[in-house]
Amino acid sequence: MTVQDETAQSVVLTEAAAGKVKALLEQEGRDDLQLRIAVQPGGCSGLRYQLFFDERSLDGDQVQDFAGVNLVVDRMSAPYLLGAKIDFVDTIEQQGFTIDNPNASGSCACGDSFH
Rank of each mutant, 00 (worst) to 15 (best):
A84Q: 10
L24H: 01
Q34V: 02
S77P: 13
A38I: 06
D59L: 13
T14F: 11
I37P: 04
F53T: 06
Q62S: 01
A109C: 01
A109F: 06
E93W: 01
G29T: 09
V21P: 05
A109K: 01
V21Q: 01
A109W: 01
H115C: 14
L81D: 14
L82W: 08
G46R: 07
L24E: 09
Q95T: 14
N103Q: 14
T7R: 06
G42H: 00
T91S: 15
S10I: 00
F114C: 10
P102T: 03
K20F: 01
C110K: 14
K20R: 15
F66C: 05
V12C: 05
T14S: 15
L25S: 08
G83F: 10
G46H: 02
E15G: 11
M1H: 04
A8R: 10
G43F: 05
D100S: 14
M76P: 07
S10R: 06
D74V: 00
D100G: 09
P79H: 00
Q95Y: 02
D87L: 02
Y49T: 03
V63A: 01
N103V: 09
S113I: 12
A18K: 09
D59W: 02
S107N: 08
C110F: 12
S45G: 09
F66P: 11
E15I: 09
V72S: 14
V69H: 13
V89Y: 10
G42K: 00
Q4E: 14
D100M: 06
A84I: 09
V39K: 03
L13N: 05
Q27H: 03
I99C: 15
E6L: 12
D5P: 01
T14V: 07
N70I: 11
A18G: 07
D31W: 03
G60K: 11
G46Y: 02
V11R: 00
G29C: 07
G42R: 02
D54P: 03
G106I: 00
D54A: 06
D31K: 09
F53D: 03
G60Y: 09
V72I: 15
L82K: 14
L33R: 09
L25R: 14
C44Q: 13
Q9K: 05
G96N: 05
G42Y: 00
E28R: 01
L58W: 00
Q62E: 02
D31L: 04
I99D: 10
I99R: 10
D31Q: 04
A84H: 11
A23L: 08
D54E: 08
G83M: 08
T91H: 11
R48S: 00
S105Y: 10
K22M: 05
E55Y: 02
E26C: 04
R36C: 12
V89G: 08
R56A: 07
P102E: 03
N70K: 15
R30V: 12
G106S: 15
N101V: 06
E15R: 11
G46V: 02
Q27G: 07
R30G: 11
D112Q: 12
L71S: 06
I86H: 07
A84F: 12
E28K: 04
Q95W: 06
D59C: 12
A67L: 02
Q95I: 07
S105W: 08
T2C: 00
T98F: 08
A17D: 11
D87I: 09
A23Q: 15
D61N: 02
A16G: 06
A84T: 13
F114I: 11
Q50P: 00
E93G: 11
Q95P: 00
A38Y: 04
I37N: 03
D87G: 13
Q40W: 04
G106F: 13
A18L: 04
